[in-house]
Computed example of a mutant assay.
Amino acid sequence: MSESPQPPSSPAEQPSYVKLAMRNMVRKGGKSLTHFALTSIGLLALLVGLSYLTR
């Protein structure tokens, strides 16, 4: 079982997933805000619909 040694990853070489996601969201601008709004409205509509059906 010989595994190849991996070099230590420093934060400067590999940015975290959160930083990459934030950078991507800033780059896309309004598109990500639109998707977030649609997702929020859809989830709210689902919860309201389920509460109406199960009352």
Results as ranks from 00 to 15, higher is better:
residue 27 R to N: 08
residue 51 S to E: 15
residue 48 V to D: 03
residue 5 P to L: 13
residue 31 K to C: 06
residue 21 A to N: 00
residue 23 R to L: 06
residue 45 A to N: 01
residue 21 A to D: 04
residue 36 F to T: 13
residue 52 Y to W: 13
residue 24 N to Q: 10
residue 54 T to I: 15
residue 4 S to H: 11
residue 31 K to M: 12
residue 2 S to F: 07
residue 1 M to C: 03
residue 51 S to K: 09
residue 31 K to T: 10
residue 28 K to N: 03
residue 31 K to L: 11
residue 5 P to W: 10
residue 14 Q to H: 06
residue 17 Y to W: 15
residue 27 R to S: 02
residue 50 L to F: 10
residue 9 S to P: 03
residue 54 T to M: 15
residue 12 A to Q: 07
residue 11 P to D: 12
residue 51 S to W: 15
residue 25 M to K: 03
residue 11 P to R: 08
residue 54 T to C: 13
residue 36 F to P: 02
residue 34 T to W: 06
residue 28 K to I: 01
residue 4 S to I: 14
residue 47 L to K: 09
residue 35 H to Y: 13
residue 2 S to Q: 10
residue 29 G to V: 04
residue 47 L to Y: 05
residue 6 Q to D: 14
residue 25 M to W: 04
residue 18 V to C: 09
residue 21 A to C: 08
residue 33 L to T: 04
residue 3 E to I: 10
residue 13 E to C: 04
residue 47 L to H: 08
residue 53 L to I: 08
residue 7 P to A: 13
residue 37 A to Q: 07
residue 15 P to L: 02
residue 53 L to S: 13
residue 49 G to I: 05
residue 20 L to C: 07
residue 15 P to F: 02
residue 45 A to V: 13
residue 38 L to E: 13
residue 39 T to W: 02
residue 17 Y to F: 15
residue 11 P to Q: 07
residue 18 V to G: 01
residue 25 M to L: 06
residue 18 V to L: 15
residue 51 S to N: 15
residue 35 H to V: 07
residue 40 S to R: 05
residue 7 P to C: 10
residue 54 T to L: 13
residue 31 K to I: 10
residue 3 E to Q: 08
residue 9 S to F: 01
residue 5 P to Y: 11
residue 37 A to R: 06
residue 23 R to P: 01
residue 3 E to D: 14
residue 18 V to S: 10
residue 49 G to K: 06
residue 3 E to A: 08
residue 21 A to T: 12
residue 6 Q to R: 14
residue 12 A to E: 14
residue 46 L to V: 05
residue 53 L to K: 09
residue 31 K to Q: 11
residue 29 G to I: 04
residue 37 A to K: 00
residue 22 M to S: 09
residue 16 S to G: 09
residue 24 N to L: 10
residue 5 P to A: 13
residue 55 R to S: 09
residue 18 V to F: 13
residue 1 M to Y: 00
residue 1 M to I: 07
